[in-house]
Design a binder for these strands. Structure first.
Lengths: 176, 176
DNA sequence: ACCTGAACACCGTTCAAGT
DNA sequence: ACCTGAACACCGTTCAAGT
């Protein structure tokens, strides 16, 4: 018996997010519409409104998923190189670059800041803050190990993040 | 005699860009449509196609204008504090922050990298590169004056830019 | 060259209705 | 609770036509 095509009792909400990520990877940000997402999930074009207030809310959920992906990648390499903060920093940066290169549209919509997410999407805020806190933790461990100079770790973490992001942006714009 | 409302022999192209910037400041990115831009410029909704291949091209022009605004602001403060690179750096950063805060939507659409501009918009590429070159020049002057540590100036410029951008992003997302 | 108006396919969102 | 189908206003883009 084939898997049921309907999400009537399933997890339509996550199916819609997955469909959105899939569309982003295939057709970019321009191809992302609520109606296409619904169609790909096998439901009518109004069904998403049972789970998301509007398109912005779906985009916020997709962005939250993007941050989770980033968090998990950095976290995985941090665990792998436990006790070696310099390596954790460089591998974390590499995870960031890999996400950007392997799924540019998902990366961009997650980190662009173009969509107004800050107001009504606490899950997005929380996931982005967890990611930043993880980077700050690695920065602090690097400071203790004398890999990075002393100073305010939050400021240095913003600098590290910004430096990596700047590089990735140059790569994505083909200027490097 | 009031100024003619028609751009039949005027500069519709720039009028459309101005209208776009105006709409961005009033209604944000969600409010930016070709039809609204045309209406605000006082022409039919198909007139923009005489000057822009599509909506992306108009957005690229608006983004180019954003980079020019950034370039001119940083350039103005660089001239004002000629011979004081430390001051040039801090005032240039302040100009960046001011642009972001005074016109968040224009700033975001310019610097988000969400739109695919790199391919067919050489004016955009050129203006963004000029802005980056200016920052790099200030960084090099700071290095000569021992305000910044020695090292590859392009890399340090990316870091400086990224640090400022990271701060601005935190401010715009109300996380600071 | 520059602009118009009709037309097409597509979109976000609402709403009454069905299970 | 979860989903459907019709409906509405709006959008990007094309095209034949007008000056």
């Amino acid at each position: 018996m084939p898997r049921k095509k309907t999400y009537h009792h399933g997890d339509l909400k996550n199916a819609l997010i997955e469909a959105g990520v899939d569309i982003l990877s295939k057709d970019g940000i321009g191809g992302l519409s609520l109606r296409r997402v619904a169609q790909q999930a096998g439901v009518s074009h109004t069904a998403p409104y049972a789970h998301f207030a509007n398109k912005q809310a779906l985009i916020a959920a997709i962005s939250t998923d993007g941050y989770r992906r980033l968090y998990e990648a950095i976290s995985a390499s941090a665990q792998q190189y436990e006790g070696d903060p310099a390596r954790q920093l460089v591998e974390g940066a590499w995870a960031y670059v890999q996400f950007a290169l392997s799924d540019a549209a998902h990366f961009k919509i997650t980190l662009s800041g173009v969509v107004e997410k800050e107001k009504d999407y606490p899950a997005f805020i929380e996931m982005s803050q967890r990611s930043f806190a993880l980077v700050m933790q690695i920065v602090e461990d690097c400071q203790k190990a004398k890999v990075l100079k002393r100073g305010p770790s939050d400021l240095i973490a913003v600098g590290v993040w910004g430096l990596i992001h700047g590089f990735v942006s140059l790569i994505l714009e083909d200027q490097i």
